[in-house]
């Protein structure tokens, strides 16, 4: 009955939602921002800390949301740690395109583990769940830096 739902709720997603690796706020951080989805009340706050080279040395998040948005936050943190701001923004744009079912495909090596979110494109009401933490990240990155 739920066979097609496995496309949405891949094991990685269920696992990350239940056992986050990067959850929690950073004790020392350079910027933080929140994104919310007024339709459902979901909220994610992201903290970022830069290393000496200006790259993202640490990314943490806290939020209340569905399995999709929490897993997305966790995998996002993993994907952008070590990137500079420009590369992180680019990753955010690529992710948005993936989640909305754009032209990029999930086996594009650029996505790595984020490819598991390709399935959300089939669930229009859930796309916003997957992109929510990325919105917070981009806001935390701000205009400059």
């Amino acid at each position: 009955m739920f066979d097609d739902l496995r496309d949405l709720y891949q094991d990685v997603i269920l696992d990350r939602a239940r056992h986050p690796r990067h959850g929690g706020r950073l004790a020392a951080f350079d910027a933080t921002a929140e994104a919310d989805n007024p339709m459902c009340g979901d909220r994610v706050r992201v903290w970022i800390a830069r290393d000496d080279a200006g790259r993202l040395g640490g990314v943490g998040y806290e939020g209340c949301g569905c399995a999709i948005s929490l897993a997305s936050a966790d995998l996002m943190a993993e994907a952008v740690i070590g990137k500079d701001a420009a590369a992180a923004r680019e990753a955010a744009a690529r992710f948005e395109s993936l989640a909305r079912g754009g032209t990029l495909t999930s086996d594009d090596p650029a996505f790595g583990p984020l490819g598991v979110f390709a399935g959300v494109a089939e669930f229009p009401s859930r796309v916003k769940c997957a992109t929510l933490p990325w919105g917070a990240l981009v806001a935390a990155l701000g205009g400059g830096a």
């Binding site: 739920f2 709720y9 459902c40 009340g41 949301g65 569905c66 999709i68």
Partner: peptide, 23 residues
């Protein structure tokens, strides 16, 4: 427990059951 309202609604929807989820 262990499932957010959206996830519950999406899984119910797959069974043809329409409920509302949110605030």
């Amino acid at each position: 427990e262990n499932a957010h309202a959206h996830d519950v609604a999406t899984l119910l929807d797959r069974q043809g059951i329409a409920v509302r989820a949110g605030h």
